[in-house]
Design a binder for these strands. Sequence first.
DNA 1: GAAGATTAAGGTTGGATTAACGTTTGGGTG
DNA 2: CACCCAAACGTTAATCCAACCTTAATCTTC
Lengths: 221, 221
Amino acid sequence: MKLLLVEDSQRLRNALKKGLEKEGFAVDAIGDGAEGLEWALAYDYDVLVLDLMLPGMNGLDLLARLRNAARQTHVLILSAKDQVQDRIRGLELGADDYLIKPIDFNELVARLKALVRRRYAAKSPITTIGAVKVNTALNQVWCNDREVALSPKEFALLQFLLAKRGRVMSRDLIRDHLYEGYGDVTGNVIDVVVCKIRKKVRVAGQADLIQTKRGFGYVIP
Amino acid sequence: MKLLLVEDSQRLRNALKKGLEKEGFAVDAIGDGAEGLEWALAYDYDVLVLDLMLPGMNGLDLLARLRNAARQTHVLILSAKDQVQDRIRGLELGADDYLIKPIDFNELVARLKALVRRRYAAKSPITTIGAVKVNTALNQVWCNDREVALSPKEFALLQFLLAKRGRVMSRDLIRDHLYEGYGDVTGNVIDVVVCKIRKKVRVAGQADLIQTKRGFGYVIP
DNA sequence: GAAGATTAAGGTTGGATTAACGTTTGGGTG
DNA sequence: CACCCAAACGTTAATCCAACCTTAATCTTC
């Protein structure tokens, strides 16, 4: 899940980035409003976390211009306790949710996941495919009623393919969704991660959860 | 692959033209903004590479007018590092991608190819012809409600003929689209691929999806 | 130092390409 | 008009190479 974080304070920015990455998000973190808008317009993020007080360009302006460019990216606003008017304005401009600083990290994660779920039109955080059950809210995977431990990256990949279920995802697309920035990651990383997931989530006598379409990419059918 | 390059500096223009032609693009290179707009409107380019700093007409104006004329041509912007505002404006106006000077030529080529791919993939995703249904978004082909697996090359060829439906495509044209850059592909490759597609997508008692116009090429009528 | 992420290397598979040969087409000729 | 021939096209089989899978080693991070 690709996430853009636009936040003034470097302390908070770094802390959030780290925490969110542990939760399986691929985070691009920007400190400047104008630059943030640039990134938001240039790429297709799953969700945007937006502080309202920004140098370069005000958070509300950023949001307005994003919506003006007809972008539907889900946006969660971070605001101070006394910025009631701004918060209202933000929701009017098409923000999808907001949190008041100081932030409860777990609540932030929960709300972000809800937004992502909404984006992919999944009603429930739990998906069951054959003998495999995935809970995207708790980052848990069950296989034949036994929990299997996936690493953050493994889980992120599984979750992404699940969100795009039925569609074949090329390695390029997967890479862009699992890693920050664009196009820098090379090699066979994706292959290896897929291999590991398969090994962990394998049920004897059954087709693999993740199938490969040679020359195109991977799918969960 | 028809490409329009609108770039002020003659040095860069010539260099890019040569390089891109070596990569298999058919390049029209223009140095003036107003003239560039004329060309962009006059022909149906696969992709437009647009410098922002131009004599005659500003690159952003050019882009605005192009979109104003309802042209969907994919546009890649070239800008200097400090032109953040212009870049944002460009993306808002409907540019599809941008690169910051100085340009990494390989990255330029990679991104241009991605844009062209997007162009041919993002038409209407589902086409039905007789008993055959093609979903270009999912890389799937259905024949009599049974999915048939096409290889990447087979799919690319089918997709190309579909995009040009009704028009007879010569082997040369097809080759140029399927084998960008490498140029000298000889032999009967196209014939073989067509044969394979036909075999896979054949419906008893019905004319083949792909028809051959002897001496001219292939069509999907 | 332990878990996870990434790179590297080897083995395997299947698509791409070539080449050879069979088939059709269309026009020229008696 | 029937025939023939050459070029264009169709099909199949064999070879080659790129994509893929897996394991192991190396690099990061906490």
